[in-house]
Simulated scan of single mutants.
Amino acid sequence: MKAVLIAGPTASGKSALALDLACAIDGTVINTDSMQVYRDLRVLTARPAPEDEVQAPHRLYGHADAAVNYSAGMWVNDAVTVLYEAREAGRVPIFIGGSGLYFKALTRGLSAVPPIPARVRDDVRARLAQGGPEALHRELSLRDPMLALKLKPRDRVRIARALEVVEATGRSLTDWHREGLPPLLPPEGTVAVFLAPDRAELYGRIDARFQAMLGQGALDEVAVLAARKLDPLLPAMKAHGVPALIKFLAGEIGRDEAMAIGQTDTRHYAKRQFTWFRHQLPEFQWVAPHEARGWLANALSLRGLN
Rank of each mutant, 00 (worst) to 15 (best):
L296P: 03
Q55T: 10
I253R: 14
K104A: 13
R47K: 08
N77P: 01
L19I: 11
G90W: 01
R87T: 08
L128E: 08
P48Y: 01
L300V: 06
A258S: 08
G62Q: 07
I206V: 14
R108E: 05
G98W: 02
G62K: 10
I116V: 14
V242D: 03
A24Q: 15
K104D: 12
I116L: 13
Q216Y: 00
I206M: 10
G98S: 09
E257T: 14
K247A: 14
H137N: 03
N69R: 15
L300R: 11
I30C: 04
G109D: 06
F194M: 14
G73A: 15
A129W: 06
V124W: 05
H279R: 13
L202A: 03
D33N: 11
R39D: 03
A64C: 11
L19E: 15
A218M: 12
L234Q: 07
L21V: 09
A244R: 12
F95G: 01
A288R: 15
R121H: 05
A112M: 04
Y102S: 05
R267Y: 04
D52K: 15
E201C: 10
A260E: 13
G254W: 10
P115R: 13
A66R: 05
R272F: 03
R303C: 05
V120N: 06
A292I: 05
S141A: 10
L195N: 01
F274I: 11
L234Y: 08
G73S: 13
G189Y: 00
D78G: 10
A22Y: 00
L41W: 00
L202W: 02
N306T: 06
A126N: 09
G241R: 10
T190L: 04
G189I: 00
G73N: 07
L17R: 08
A223G: 03
A86S: 15
P235K: 09
L230Q: 10
E221F: 03
A7L: 08
P9I: 06
T174P: 01
